[in-house]
C-alpha cells in the first residue's frame, strides 16, 4: 500500500469552522467551468441549522470531488473514462464514456453527476469537479479556492496541508474534532476536511482506510484464473462423462451395432 501521509498530490483543505456558507466558491466554479444554470460541480452539504432556539449551531460544508488517492470511480468505469493525474486530480474523459453510471454507484461520496436532461444529440455525460487543471497548470489555485473570502478553502501539497490541519487541531483542540477527514478515509483523499461537528453532520460517509473498491478489485483479479480453471474442469468433466457413457454404451449395445450404422447413414 502507498504511504498516504506522504503522497505528492495537490490537495484541498476545507475548514468548516471558517466557512460562512456564502457560496462564492460555487459561483466561481460555475463561471470558470462554464457550468449550465441547473447543474453544479460543487454544492453545500451538511445539516445546516441544528438545535432549538436559543441553543443553536450550524454546520455545513462545501462538497465536491474528493479526488481520492485510490479513486473508486476509476476502478469501476468499464471503459476507463477516469484517470488520476500524477499530481492529484481525478479526471473524466467524456470521449469514451458509455453513460452506464456505474461510477456514480461506485463513488462513496455521490460525486459524479449525469446529464439526465440530454438526449443523443446533445450527448449525455458525467460531470464532476476536475480540480481546475486549466488553472493549477498555470500556477493558479482552483477557482473555488481562489475566491474564498475566509480561506475556508485552501489548496496546496497534501503533506503541507495535512501539517497545517494537524497544527490547527493542536492549537485549538477545543474547537475541532480530532481528526482530519480524508487523511485516511477511503485510502486517503485529496480533499481534507476539518470540522467542529461530527463529520456525519457534514454529510460525509463513514469510511474505513481501505478504498471501497478493494474487494471488488480483488475479486476481479480472480476472474481470469477462475475462468481458465473452470473451463478446464468443465472440459475434463465433459470428456470424462462422455468416455464413461461411451464405455457403458459400448458394453450394453455391442449387439445392436448394425442397426446403429444404418441409422447413421440415413
Amino acid at each position: 500500500m502507498t504511504d498516504i501521509q506522504n503522497i505528492q498530490h495537490k490537495t484541498f483543505l476545507f475548514d468548516a469552522t471558517r466557512c460562512i456558507d456564502c457560496r462564492a466558491c460555487m459561483i466561481a466554479c460555475s463561471v470558470e467551468n462554464n457550468i449550465p444554470m441547473d447543474k453544479t460541480r460543487i454544492w453545500v452539504a451538511g445539516v445546516g441549522l441544528k438545535g432549538e432556539f436559543p441553543d443553536l449551531s450550524r454546520a455545513s460544508m462545501v462538497y465536491h470531488c474528493m479526488h481520492c488517492e485510490e479513486p473508486d470511480c476509476m476502478s469501476a468505469c468499464p471503459v476507463g473514462a477516469y484517470s488520476k493525474r500524477e499530481d492529484g486530480p481525478v479526471l473524466y474523459n467524456k470521449d469514451v464514456c458509455i453513460g452506464c453510471r456505474y461510477c456514480m454507484n461506485a463513488c462513496p461520496f455521490g460525486v459524479p453527476h449525469f446529464d439526465y436532461d440530454k438526449g443523443l444529440i446533445d450527448g449525455a455525460f458525467i460531470d464532476k469537479c476536475t480540480m481546475c487543471p486549466q488553472r493549477i497548470d498555470n500556477g493558479l489555485a482552483p477557482a473555488c479556492v481562489a475566491t474564498c473570502p475566509t480561506d475556508a478553502l485552501m489548496f496546496g501539497e497534501r503533506a503541507d496541508l495535512l501539517k497545517i490541519a494537524h497544527e490547527r487541531i493542536a492549537a485549538h483542540p477545543d474547537r475541532y474534532i480530532d481528526h482530519v477527514y480524508g487523511e485516511t478515509e477511503n485510502g486517503g483523499t485529496s480533499y481534507l476536511i476539518l470540522s467542529h461537528v461530527p463529520f456525519s453532520e457534514l454529510g460525509l460517509p463513514n469510511l474505513g482506510p481501505k478504498p471501497v473498491k478493494d474487494v471488488s478489485e480483488a475479486v476481479m483479479g480472480l476472474t481470469i484464473p477462475f475462468a481458465l480453471t473452470w473451463g478446464a474442469v468443465l472440459t475434463g468433466v465433459t470428456v470424462g462423462v462422455h468416455m464413461y457413457n461411451q464405455k457403458k454404451e459400448a458394453a450394453a449395445k455391442s449387439t445392436t451395432d448394425a442397426k446403429d450404422s444404418t441409422e447413421e447413414t440415413k
Binding site: 476509476m74 469501476a76 468499464p78 471503459v79 476507463g80 458509455i98 453513460g99 452506464c100 456505474y102
Partner: peptide
C-alpha cells in the same frame, strides 16, 4: 435505453478497464 451513450456500447470491446466488474459483465 438505459445507457447514456447506447451507440457506444461496443466501446466495451475496445476500451478495457480491467478492474471494472461491469466490463467483465459486459
Amino acid at each position: 435505453v438505459d445507457l447514456g451513450h447506447p451507440e457506444r456500447i461496443w466501446y466495451m470491446m475496445i476500451h478495457w478497464n480491467h478492474t471494472s466488474v461491469l466490463l467483465e459483465i459486459g
